[in-house]
Deep mutational scan, measured.
Amino acid sequence: AEKTGIVNVSSSLNAREGASTSSKVIGSLSGNTKVTIVGEEGAFYKIEYKGSHGYVAKEYIKDIKDE
């Protein structure tokens, strides 16, 4: 099942092309942005936001229960 997560940073969080800190940054998400978690790979979540996919470090995403 898809989960919703909240970007848990004070400034912004980089979204990357792949599940690695050396992957190209494809965008950034500001704190408290809601994202859909579609998968996980190592220390990263694969997320969907406004129709695009990217990878973000798990430690900066807070899971919330689907309402």
Rank of each mutant, 00 (worst) to 15 (best):
A1R: 13
E2M: 15
E2S: 15
K3V: 08
K3N: 05
K3W: 15
T4G: 05
G5W: 05
I6S: 04
I6Y: 12
I6M: 07
I6W: 12
V7M: 05
V7G: 03
V7S: 03
N8V: 12
N8H: 10
V9P: 07
V9H: 10
S10V: 12
S10L: 12
S10D: 10
S10K: 12
S11I: 11
S11T: 14
S11N: 13
S12I: 12
S12V: 12
L13T: 11
L13D: 02
L13C: 15
L13N: 02
N14Q: 14
N14C: 15
N14K: 11
A15P: 05
A15Q: 05
A15F: 15
A15C: 15
R16W: 15
R16M: 15
E17Y: 05
E17T: 04
E17W: 05
G18F: 15
G18M: 10
G18Q: 14
G18P: 04
G18H: 14
A19K: 04
A19F: 05
T21F: 15
T21I: 14
T21K: 10
S22R: 06
S22N: 12
S23P: 01
S23E: 04
S23C: 11
S23D: 05
K24P: 13
K24G: 06
V25T: 07
V25G: 04
V25C: 07
I26Y: 02
G27R: 02
G27W: 14
S28D: 05
S28A: 11
L29I: 13
L29M: 05
L29V: 09
S30I: 12
S30A: 14
S30R: 13
S30T: 13
G31A: 14
G31S: 13
G31F: 11
G31R: 12
N32E: 07
N32C: 14
T33N: 04
T33R: 05
T33D: 09
K34F: 10
K34Q: 10
K34T: 10
V35N: 01
V35C: 04
T36F: 11
T36R: 12
T36C: 11
T36E: 05
I37P: 01
I37W: 00
I37N: 00
I37D: 02
V38P: 00
V38K: 04
V38F: 05
V38L: 12
G39A: 07
G39D: 06
G39V: 02
G39P: 00
E40I: 06
E40P: 00
E41T: 07
G42M: 03
G42E: 07
A43Q: 11
F44Y: 12
F44M: 03
Y45C: 05
Y45T: 01
Y45N: 01
K46Q: 06
E48I: 15
E48W: 11
Y49W: 11
Y49F: 14
Y49N: 01
K50N: 13
K50R: 10
K50C: 12
G51A: 05
S52D: 07
S52Y: 11
S52W: 13
H53V: 13
H53E: 06
G54C: 08
Y55C: 04
Y55V: 00
V56P: 00
V56C: 04
V56K: 00
V56W: 00
V56N: 00
A57C: 15
A57F: 10
K58E: 01
K58T: 03
K58S: 03
E59I: 12
E59W: 08
Y60T: 04
Y60A: 09
Y60V: 05
Y60G: 09
Y60P: 01
Y60C: 14
I61A: 02
I61K: 00
I61Q: 00
K62R: 12
K62T: 14
K62C: 12
K62F: 08
D63L: 15
D63M: 15
D63P: 10
D63W: 11
D63Y: 13
I64D: 06
I64C: 11
I64F: 09
I64E: 06
I64L: 09
I64Y: 09
K65C: 12
K65W: 11
K65S: 13
K65H: 12
D66S: 13
D66P: 12
D66E: 13
D66H: 11
E67K: 14
